[in-house]
Design a protein around this nucleic acid. Structure first.
Lengths: 343, 343
DNA sequence: GTTGGCACTCTACTGCTTAGAGTGCTAACG
DNA sequence: CGTTAGCACTCTAAGCAGTAGAGTGCCAAC
């Protein structure tokens, strides 16, 4: 990143240009800037400044005789330095609060609802990711016989998430013996984080005499699978249709790329997972994400907290988005969500 | 539906026309039919027949001087009477079998995988829906204390599906008392179908003295929520990108409609749920589905069986699809899936 | 019943022109 | 010296006419 000292005029003009471009989706010319926003200078002067900004890589021209549009660096500088943060109106806050105050019977439900709310309020793609499972604390393990040779393991953690896993056994196991085995697992493992369990399970169960040895052995072998990252994080996306109406996705090639991103999921999960560690609202612009399909797109994200574990909520859309508005919206939504989950 | 007696020639020409149209996505003219497929007649004769078929509503012209394309009735007749069913090649069968033989830890996993396989093999949208929960037999209920005032109910059914629900209680309940309450529920309810439970739970638990009365009461009040249809069926869709490359979705309006359908989900769930009752492969063409977003689309579906309960797998794509191929593919996939789930 | 011939229709493509938007440069201005 | 008006230049988008091609429907002949 080169050294960037902008004059006052350059800053104003860049801000005005971005504001206007975000609203109209059309390249912005010198005349519009000079007349519609009264800067007290003529179009010719603006032209000179635009030329300077282009030199600095903050704006560019789609073709020789068109207005300018912001580059990714332009947006970056705008978000970091130029943006005046907006405050949500009371009705907006109320709306979000009410929309999230649903009866939910599983954590997935409220996250899905959150994605939906974000999508609707922003007309972008709303995304959420469930808390990192690794850090969750085990509450209870249960074993249920499904068929003669198939046992289902149910793992419940403190935050209310449940995962299941099937294991195959050689022969039928008595109900009482299964219960006893579950008791052993609960006694030895509950209260530990899943990460700890994964690292120390072999040790903890080695000398165990009680319970069914085969089930215990299988549990130890399979726990990796069950507690693995991929099964831990669940991505919710909502509002794909919103994306369609965005001007940048009229281009079918672009659209295709974006939907591929949505369907592959793991890169999106990676992106959001990283944001879990941030404590403030984060804006990721285009190539910064290092994801092919995110070219031309930005993400506004914020981590939320549920007990000791954390996840991420946010919106994704074209780089041409109303950053100020989205940032305050995502910020507030994340806060409300944390509040509800911690109750 | 009008009376439809087709001559031998009409039948052949309709079949040829559909075959050709499905491959090329271009309106088919008389010359192509007469020359590329040697029917031993001239284009002029074919024109006469085409005119007759149009009269009967089986084909139509996009505009005066273009070739013909099939109407929905045309496809219907083709599927019902004209289609020669294809047999999957051994390598294809092998491919499906192998793709579905994954280690799965939850039923959802293998259904997701099934959607993916169908999507990839057909280049259409692959869809699956989890078995109707109502008919499932309860295996075990478990109660887990999450916080002082929050208890999680875990319901496991025989086929390996698990649902959770949160209930709010007034005050902390002792572990032993909670366990006792769970025991009561298991004793009274396990082995019954969820539908039966929903209908008879009040009666069954009325005179119960043991267990925590508050939890029992809440369970009775909330079971409706937990066992409700909507929470029982889960839809998996895979391969949205495939749909993009289909010629009929170049039209953005059409595409938008389709993606809306995908995101609303409940109409799709309804559609697939009905098919659960069919015992054979089913083809639903366009308006037959009575769903707005399905205009111009067809679905090829087949129910599968897992223990005593059933679900549906299939593919959805534009009406212009390779019915014969898709039917055999979906059919075989459903069979393999049933097999795996019943093991 | 089938066929060749022919006039007719409609679409898609091409090339051309024009209007408009916006720029960069230069020379003049305060 | 920064600012400005003026002007030539560039590029796009839109409209228009003309043409080629595909395909039909109909008629008269086989």
């Amino acid at each position: 990143m080169m050294q960037l000292d902008l004059t006052e005029r350059e800053r104003t003009i860049l801000a005005v240009l971005i504001d206007h471009y975000v609203r109209t989706a059309e390249p912005v010319g010198s005349r519009v800037i000079a007349t519609r926003y009264d800067l007290g200078v003529s179009p010719a002067t603006v032209r000179n400044t635009l030329s300077d900004l282009e030199e600095k890589g903050l704006i560019e021209q789609p073709h020789t005789s068109s207005g300018r549009i912001p580059t990714e660096s332009g947006y970056r500088l705008y978000v970091d330095k130029l943006l005046k943060s907006e405050r949500l109106s009371a009705p907006e806050r109320e709306k979000i609060k009410r929309a999230l105050s649903i009866d939910y019977s599983a954590i997935e439900d409220i996250l899905e609802q959150t994605s939906r709310v974000l999508a609707r309020l922003t007309s972008q793609l709303g995304v959420t990711i469930t808390p990192k499972f690794d850090q969750a604390v085990l509450n209870k393990v249960d074993l249920v016989q499904l068929t003669d040779t198939r046992v289902m393991v149910i793992v419940a953690v403190r935050s209310g998430i449940v995962r299941t896993i099937l294991i195959e056994v050689d022969s039928n196991i008595e109900v009482e013996r299964l219960r006893q085995t579950a008791d052993v697992l609960n006694e030895k493992l509950s209260g530990l984080s899943l990460g700890e369990i994964r690292r120390t399970i072999a040790e903890r169960l080695r000398a165990e005499e009680r319970g069914d040895p085969q089930v215990l052995k299988l549990f130890m072998e399979q726990h990796e699978h069950m507690l693995s990252e991929s099964s831990g994080e669940e991505l919710h996306t909502e509002g794909t249709i919103n994306i369609l109406s965005q001007k940048e996705f009229q281009n079918p090639e672009k659209l295709r790329e974006f939907l591929t991103l949505l369907e592959e999921r793991h890169s999106l999960i990676d992106l959001l997972k990283i944001k879990t560690f941030a404590n403030d609202i984060t804006v990721t612009i285009g190539a910064e994400a290092n994801i092919e399909g995110m070219k031309g797109c930005s993400a506004v994200t914020r981590s939320y907290q549920a007990g000791q574990i954390r996840g991420t909520v946010g919106v994704i859309g074209p780089t041409r988005m109303e950053y100020a508005k989205l940032m305050s919206l995502v910020d507030y939504t994340a806060k409300v969500l944390s509040e509800i989950l911690s109750r």
